[in-house]
């Protein structure tokens, strides 16, 4: 059921003007930092859709903007109150840093409190915490890691969580080998009147990056790499229903 709902969500059309809760918005903009101060990591990230002028709170992205560069915003309009940061909330949301430079801009808090930091749900335990091996039986299984647009960098408190869980399962399952496949969303798309596409080589970079990490975490395990361009979205729910995120991935296939 969860998988069906996710597929349904991924099939939803992109909308230039998000008006309903759950609608997907996707645009490119220069991010604005609001210096709301409710303690550590509490500042707000805002971005305005150039097609509508609508400003969104994109603070909940697992990889956050750099005020010197444009961001690709992908998110769904949430029902949450705009009271935290002063804009409509996108949640889930992703904000990929692009190469285009921006004039850095910071707003004062203007009475908005931001959000008091809480640990994200995808947060790994210290090594001192035991990781019980999941019970069998074991069969071929795929684990997925996710990336920022056109990057191969392992995302903190997202990919590390996915990999930590995968490695715990793999340690118990003892597959014959792992096959890591990197995907790149290379089919050009027009977003905010700009044509964007990932580099084909980022597919290999993603595969090699994850393979390197797996070789360190699972010494002696055979790890092979593959890569594919023109990626189609995965139905994995950990893409949080964001089609672009569901394309930008690497899959770890445990083969027996």
């Amino acid at each position: 059921m969860r998988k069906a709902l996710t597929l349904l969500a991924l099939a939803a059309p992109l909308s230039a003007q998000a008006a309903e809760t759950g609608d997907l918005v996707r645009f490119i903009a220069c991010p604005v930092y609001r210096d709301a101060d409710s303690g550590k990591k509490s500042g707000c990230w805002l971005a305005s859709d150039p097609a509508t002028g609508g400003r969104y709170d994109v603070s909940q992205s697992p990889y956050k903007p750099d005020w010197n560069f444009a961001v690709l915003v992908e998110g769904r309009l949430a029902a949450a109150s705009p009271a935290s940061c002063g804009a409509a909330v996108l949640e889930p949301v992703r904000t990929s840093r692009l190469a285009a430079p921006c004039v850095r801009h910071m707003l004062p808090a203007e009475g908005f409190p931001g959000r008091k930091y809480v640990l994200p749900r995808r947060n790994i335990n210290p090594l001192s915490v035991a990781r019980p091996l999941p019970p069998g039986p074991y069969a071929e299984r795929v684990f997925t890691t996710w990336f920022e647009f056109d990057r191969d960098f392992l995302v903190y408190q997202y990919d590390d969580y996915q990999i930590d869980n995968a490695v715990t399962w793999i340690r118990g399952a003892k597959p014959a080998k792992l096959v890591v496949t990197g995907f790149a969303a290379t089919t050009p798309e027009t977003v905010s009147a700009q044509q964007i596409a990932e580099r084909p080589e980022v597919a290999q970079e993603r595969a090699e990056s994850i393979a390197q990490t797996l070789r360190r975490l699972l010494p002696g395990m055979t790890v092979e790499t593959k890569w594919e361009v023109g990626a189609k979205p995965s139905s994995d729910p950990d893409a949080d229903g964001i089609p672009g995120q569901a394309q930008r991935r690497a899959e770890i296939r445990a083969v027996f």
């Binding site: 101060d37 550590k40 990591k41 990889y63 956050k64 903007p65 005020w67 960098f153």
Partner: peptide, 27 residues
């Protein structure tokens, strides 16, 4: 005591804390 950490590789890049990010010495 928090402050805005800016343009500092290892904090503001390449990991996804954002640039800037508000935190203190114990970050």
């Amino acid at each position: 005591k928090t402050f805005l950490i800016t343009d500092t590789a290892g904090i503001n890049s390449r990991m996804g804390f954002g640039n800037p990010v508000r935190n203190s010495c114990v970050f």
